[in-house]
Design a protein around this nucleic acid. Sequence first.
DNA 1: ACAACATTTATCCGATCGGTTAAATGTTGT
DNA 2: ACAACATTTAACCGATCGGATAAATGTTGT
Lengths: 111, 111
Amino acid sequence: MSRAATADARLDAVFTALADPTRRRIVARLARGSATVGEIAEPFAISLPAISKHLDVLGRAGLVQREREGRFQRCTLDARALDPAAELIARYRDFWEDALERLARYVEDDP
Amino acid sequence: MSRAATADARLDAVFTALADPTRRRIVARLARGSATVGEIAEPFAISLPAISKHLDVLGRAGLVQREREGRFQRCTLDARALDPAAELIARYRDFWEDALERLARYVEDDP
DNA sequence: ACAACATTTATCCGATCGGTTAAATGTTGT
DNA sequence: ACAACATTTAACCGATCGGATAAATGTTGT
């Protein structure tokens, strides 16, 4: 597998993970500290298996790490997984600022 | 509809749009300048209707604007649509840096 | 008017998604 | 050993996804 394909797969996984509001709420919850699956599930109206599957998706994206703690499973946010996504977005925002700048120059030079 | 629901829907749309490699390639193409649907489709091995649907998804996310130009349709990237996504990601990266900082302090103070 | 062209709409297909319930698994405390 | 608990796996459901092809629509040049 080439590096490009790998990076692509990572971006797929991260953006897919963030594309669901339930998963974004889980991320928000974990940003306030690690939690067990049950704790994460508590405020949601959906079943535990559904939460477990969401955690799988977040795990595949590298955003959540799970660690056994007795009969519990501690889930921790790993925000480093956001880096490739942040980089991609920053790139296009830069492009946009450059475009605006060019436009401004154009209007200035040739009014 | 509440503002929160609206913001959520926007994030859904943008992250969903970016979750597909074909759509990311389209965005990359448009970052180098606006293009017609045919021009966008040219480097891809998939059908025109498929491209048209991808442009719909990008359009719903606000990332691509389409404007009739004779019998062509000019597509333009609007990177401002990335703002809410960039903000969300930045928030969690900040959290992460704060967490690392706290950890560093902790190790320092109590080695 | 009409033929060629650019793009979309309609319809269909198999795969994946987000959810469910029921059963299985792993872990703990007594 | 066993009962209670935390979580996952399995199997299923309807909806959506990404793709295809065929037909429709809108636009242009002659």
